[in-house]
């Protein structure tokens, strides 16, 4: 005869296998096609982000919505290039204000390593010290196609991620 506790554990295991995986897939599926980016511009890559939102590239067909929502409803932070010493505390504040789950895309060489401004006295060498980054987009500035590719990579990451 099986002990009651063991039976409960068994049922729990069966339930997790039966519901947990479809539930994780469903929640992630809902999240990955409605990404709301924060409207915060740090430097000149924002012009290519503006071009990405134009009719030729149109990221809404992939599920990236327009960047005009409130910070409290956003789940995607795209850092457009250079982060200076004056802007860094502000960017950290913006990241902390966003609700979980949240993802970060570092766009442009400046957001990755400092880029062209690696030896400047006022530029941070990348944003890794400020926040965890999910996808890096190389380029100075990256083309709109690269932004769309990064978006698809981020969606793959969200699709495979654990339920949070």
């Amino acid at each position: 005869m099986v002990a009651p506790n063991a039976l409960v554990g068994k049922v729990n295991e069966i339930l997790v296998q039966a519901i947990g995986e479809p539930l994780r897939y469903l929640v992630n599926w809902g999240r990955l096609y409605s990404l709301w980016p924060v409207h915060v511009e740090t430097a000149c890559c924002s012009i290519e982000f503006g071009a990405t939102h134009g009719p030729r590239f149109d990221p809404e067909r992939f599920g990236l919505l327009e960047a005009f929502g409130s910070l409290r409803q956003c789940d995607l932070l795209i850092v457009f290039g250079t982060v200076t010493r004056k802007f860094a505390p502000r960017l950290k504040m913006i990241y902390d204000q966003m609700p979980e789950p949240k993802w970060v895309i570092a766009m442009g060489a400046c957001a990755i390593t400092g880029g062209l401004y690696f030896d400047s006295y006022n530029v941070l060498p990348g944003i890794d010290d400020l926040m965890p980054v999910d996808v890096y987009i190389p380029g100075c500035p990256p083309r709109p196609e690269s932004v769309l590719q990064a978006l698809i990579m981020l969606q793959e990451k969200i699709r495979k991620s654990k339920l949070r």
Partner: peptide, 8 residues
């Protein structure tokens, strides 16, 4: 209040 993108 400018200076958020001062890169020197």
């Amino acid at each position: 209040d400018p200076g958020y993108v001062h890169r020197g």
